[in-house]
Design a protein around this nucleic acid. Structure first.
Lengths: 212, 212
DNA sequence: GATAAATAAATACGACCGGTCGGTTTTATT
DNA sequence: AATAAAACCGACCGGTCGTATTTATTTATC
């Protein structure tokens, strides 16, 4: 397998551009993300960036995919290292709040910003975001279902409802933390999920008492 | 008290413009709200609109105030007609979900869209939105505190935390309902608050069993 | 009916937008 | 060493943005 250095260089550039695009879009949205700003923030020319994607929409879609990869790496992967069941659900939520609290992205949450931005605008970007949200929801529900199957949550639990609740606490944290007192926002976001899981679980000792 | 008809007419025009601005901004954000689009959607000239506000930022701030008035009228006022306590909290949340479900605004939620849009952008708009969110939070907490004082919620309840949770379920509904299945989203949003209140209240019969 | 204030329209400006193009540099293959 | 391909650049296009100025049209009050 020979590696074409020209393609490799392009791939590196492409990834670097998309990382910057995710950051910028978390602040200004996918629409506010302009080729000029993106180029300036990377110290390259506008056309040098544009050459990699055939249109702005293609760039937006690629940016979404990159954000998904980042989410997978920084939130989902760490959670999957926790044991199945309520601890994994808790680890996922904690990783998410940490992601917001450590300000990985200047805008806080790429998906919160862009999903609100495009929820009323038809088009390919809307559809891609809808798919991403559906996948994320299915993943959350899978984690909840696993906890039920392990007996760490009662069988009567409404899986989809609990997944909705947990995600809600995360979304609200992303939204409020930049407008409101971040510390109490994060404390509430962590507390709400912890209380919910401990309140439901037949064995609350699986989880810490206080927000870790 | 003599009313100057010229001023009255100006006020009427201004209100009509701001109503359209709230609708447009709920779809495209306060930044995407352009004077040209706004003028077109009202059948007037761009400068005819611009004359009423000295800058786009002034228009954005006025639009926020108008959205607050609309929220006050359609969500807060109806809730205040319910008796104090958990029933009022429930009525508030139901009015909110109804507001989303009946598609009063094409974008779903003005505040969800704009608060995510501006949470990472310093400036007057950010600050105004922060104040609005703080007022809304204080109002929600007041309703929860009243329920505690009435004995309809246990004294140990963390008022700020419960207010956070209730608002989270509303925010998530606004965000998900346009990308995902609206029916299940609204059902989850209603269920989550109802279950939470009934679970906490010493007298669950105050609230209906199923989503109304 | 005259007058002054308020409102609306017309027009234009500079900045920036996404997008195009021809040409240069870097890199791999032959 | 020659050729081809990919990456990258600078200049430029038409269009739209917010903004400003200037002119015309309502409308209330004297």
């Amino acid at each position: 397998m020979t590696v074409d250095g020209r393609l490799a260089r392009g791939e590196r550039t492409r990834t670097a551009v998309l990382d910057a695009a995710v950051s910028l879009a978390s602040e200004s949205g996918l629409d506010g993300l302009s080729l000029g700003h993106l180029a300036d923030s990377l110290g390259v020319s506008k056309s040098g960036i544009f050459a990699h994607w055939r249109s702005k929409e293609a760039l937006q879609l690629a940016t979404i995919d990159r954000a998904v990869a980042q989410w997978q790496e920084l939130i989902i992967a760490p959670a999957l290292r926790a044991p199945r069941g309520v601890r994994r659900i808790h680890a996922l939520h904690e990783a998410r709040i940490d992601f917001y609290a450590t300000r990985v992205l200047p805008g806080g949450c790429f998906f919160g910003t862009t999903e609100f931005e495009f929820n009323a605008r038809p088009g390919a970007v809307h559809d891609r975001l809808a798919t991403v949200l559906a996948d994320w929801t299915a993943f959350l529900e899978r984690l909840v279902r696993e906890a039920v199957e392990l007996g760490e949550l009662p069988a009567e639990v409404d899986v989809a409802l609990l997944a909705y609740e947990i995600d809600s606490f995360g979304i609200a944290a992303a939204m409020r933390s930049r407008l409101f007192d971040p510390e109490s926002t994060y404390r509430h976001a962590r507390r709400s999920v912890l209380d919910r899981l401990r309140g439901l679980s037949p064995d609350p000792t699986l989880l810490p008492e206080g927000p870790s």
